[in-house]
Design a protein around this nucleic acid. Structure first.
Lengths: 123, 123
DNA sequence: GTCGTTGCAAAGCGTTTGCAGCCTA
DNA sequence: TAGGCTGCAAACGCTTTGCAACGAC
């Protein structure tokens, strides 16, 4: 049975407050403001627990450590700003996925990441 | 000045022969058939050297170690088989990238990865 | 012979796991 | 009080680096 600890509450709260995906390190720093002495192992263990529970989802970006965001959102992709390093959600989905799939291959899922400048950084 | 060693020749040859991106480990195994006793450190050092030289390009897949392929190919994306773990090139590009980009954002690049079963594994 | 290159082993780095004590239910 | 949870440190897997010997030119 799962218990409601200070650590877990702080970790959940960090995700509620952040409007964007968090890395384990960012999460540690955020949650430590609430729970001093919080260990990185606890952060990783809770990330996994919250994922198993279906409360969190991994956001895997090519070439960098995974970030995490609240689960249950509608299908979406991400825009990674190369200036502020922030990750934004984008709605919608590129077309002609099937036409791009090689003949004989079975398509089950897809990842899609946009890179560039966000509105603030483009100004 | 760069030297032409047995190891470097074997590594180059492995890429020429493989029709798909190779991970450092796959590369080690392939090149070892030519050069027994080849070390993994040498593989990594040559991957970097060949990248600097513009002969190789990294293929970064979300959530796993990078693979590498010959540079200079036409724009393409990749299909990752969840069964045999191989990565294939796919030609073409999904549409409506601009429609998906949020207003005010500047789109500079995109990554796109398909997941599923390759032709061999789907059988 | 020079000096770039190699293999080995050790060091890094992010993530996971073992363990003894802690704390929630 | 039981047993899930935590912090610490050690263990991991992948990649990089230090070093002395090697070998291309």
């Amino acid at each position: 049975m799962q218990r409601d600890t200070r650590q877990r509450r702080a970790i959940r709260a960090a995700f509620e407050e952040a409007g964007h995906p968090l890395s384990p390190q960012e999460l540690l720093e955020a949650a430590r403001q609430e729970v001093k002495g919080l260990g990185i192992a606890t952060v990783y263990r809770n990330i996994r627990a919250l994922q198993d529970e279906g409360w969190l989802e991994a956001v895997e970006l090519p070439g960098e450590p995974a970030r995490y965001e609240r689960a249950g959102k509608a299908h979406h992709h991400h825009f990674h700003c190369r200036e502020c390093d922030r990750v934004y959600e984008v709605d919608g989905c590129p077309g002609n996925l099937k036409e791009v799939t090689p003949p004989g291959f079975t398509l089950e899922a897809h990842e899609f990441v946009l890179y560039g400048l966000c509105e603030a950084c483009a100004a």
